[in-house]
Computed example of a mutant assay.
Amino acid sequence: MANSQDDHVNPSQGSSSNAFIPPSIHPSSLLSGQSYCHYSPCPEDITSSLNVDSTTPIPDPSIPTTPCVLGVDEAGRGPVLGPMVYSAFYLPLSLHHSLLAEEHHFNDSKVLTPGVRSNLMRLLCTPGHSLQKSCGWAVKLLSARDISAGMQRPGAGMYNLNAQAMDATVEIIRGVVEERGVDVKEVYIDTIGNPQSYQKKLEMIFPSLKITVAKKADSLFPCVSAASVCAKVTRDSALDICYEALQKERVGKGMEHMNDGWGSGYPSDSKCTSWLKKEMHPLFGWGNECRFSWGTAKELLEVKAGLKVDWPADEDEEATKMTQYFTTASAESNDTQDELRDWYGRRPKEIF
């Protein structure tokens, strides 16, 4: 999966809605259906355990580090359109409540307006701002294509959404703690399923971290609230970028604009379902923006698709026994020589 950060959008650019586009948007990876990670620079107020003067950064126990708290949350678990985004957000323990909750009023992203979320994300990316100097963040964007590919693996090979979500959580925590040397002491995570069992799984992976998994963690812990904002702004921007790309593609083909939009991407959104029905290709369905493993998409393809593809079965339905290659020909075909049987054991000069 792509991890490159060299193709991100300039933060000064805007989308069709004039919302802030964060540097966690990597257009080329996004539009090609690739999943990827993005990490902000380590804040200047946080000293990590890595010896950054080394060509290959290595842990240096002599460096005094900054004790930090880290929160994890996601956006886009349920939609049929667009990616699912997991985010980790970290800052010094001493600033956890004062900076996030008291000064900047971070809260669960669902209770904040799009404008407030966008502005908070903008401040996080503004050089010299107190949030940018003290807070770091990371996202793992799981593309609709990769989510569906995992969920549609046959049989026991299926990679379900919970497993994908947990792997994303583990990846970004490791990226912050192990690869960037941030001295994380406490971790707060919004749960997937049962909080106790999920917490035990994570504690086995990160035995040195104090981990708390809870329902509605995004409304209980400011660092999780901040993570939810990063995840939500990244997902919303990703949807804007995908929609604009489709508009440009249609213009290039001389087609009319999609004036009605595609809504939030959730199956319960009438705009979303209308878009899916109107824009479905009779053979290929949709592009990388759609989760083909979702029931909504499956039903439309099965019921509304105008073209059917029949894959012919093998003509010989009975399995061929290996022994038949080494037995004599049957009475009905005495004059027919079996090529493999006649060749086997002969010297090359007798064959050629």
Rank of each mutant, 00 (worst) to 15 (best):
283 L>Q: 10
63 I>K: 08
189 I>A: 01
285 G>H: 11
284 F>E: 11
223 C>F: 04
59 P>N: 07
285 G>A: 09
85 V>E: 00
37 C>Q: 13
256 E>G: 13
71 G>V: 07
164 Q>P: 02
189 I>L: 03
178 E>W: 03
152 Q>D: 15
234 T>L: 03
282 P>K: 08
89 F>A: 05
164 Q>V: 00
53 D>P: 00
248 K>R: 15
95 L>H: 11
255 M>R: 15
271 K>E: 01
223 C>I: 10
260 D>C: 09
5 Q>I: 01
238 A>P: 01
293 S>P: 05
348 P>I: 09
322 M>A: 14
77 R>H: 04
183 D>F: 02
289 E>T: 09
179 E>W: 05
48 S>K: 07
44 E>K: 14
29 S>T: 03
248 K>Q: 15
259 N>T: 14
205 I>G: 02
78 G>C: 05
117 R>E: 11
329 A>W: 06
23 P>L: 07
67 P>C: 03
111 V>H: 11
13 Q>C: 09
343 W>L: 14
68 C>H: 03
335 D>M: 10
244 E>K: 11
8 H>D: 02
233 V>Y: 01
199 Q>S: 13
177 V>R: 00
256 E>A: 15
289 E>F: 08
218 D>F: 01
330 S>N: 10
318 E>P: 07
347 R>S: 13
352 F>E: 10
81 L>Q: 13
214 A>G: 11
333 S>E: 13
249 E>M: 10
141 L>D: 00
205 I>W: 03
237 S>H: 07
350 E>L: 06
121 M>N: 02
132 Q>N: 14
247 Q>E: 14
274 S>H: 13
37 C>Y: 08
217 A>E: 06
58 I>T: 14
332 E>N: 06
281 H>C: 05
20 F>P: 05
279 E>V: 08
322 M>P: 00
271 K>Y: 03
145 R>S: 11
256 E>Y: 12
246 L>D: 01
224 V>R: 02
74 E>F: 02
71 G>M: 10
352 F>G: 07
30 L>N: 04
289 E>V: 12
223 C>M: 12
263 G>W: 10
111 V>D: 14
32 S>P: 09
324 Q>H: 12
14 G>L: 14
153 R>A: 11
195 P>K: 12
161 L>P: 10
293 S>C: 15
325 Y>H: 13
18 N>S: 12
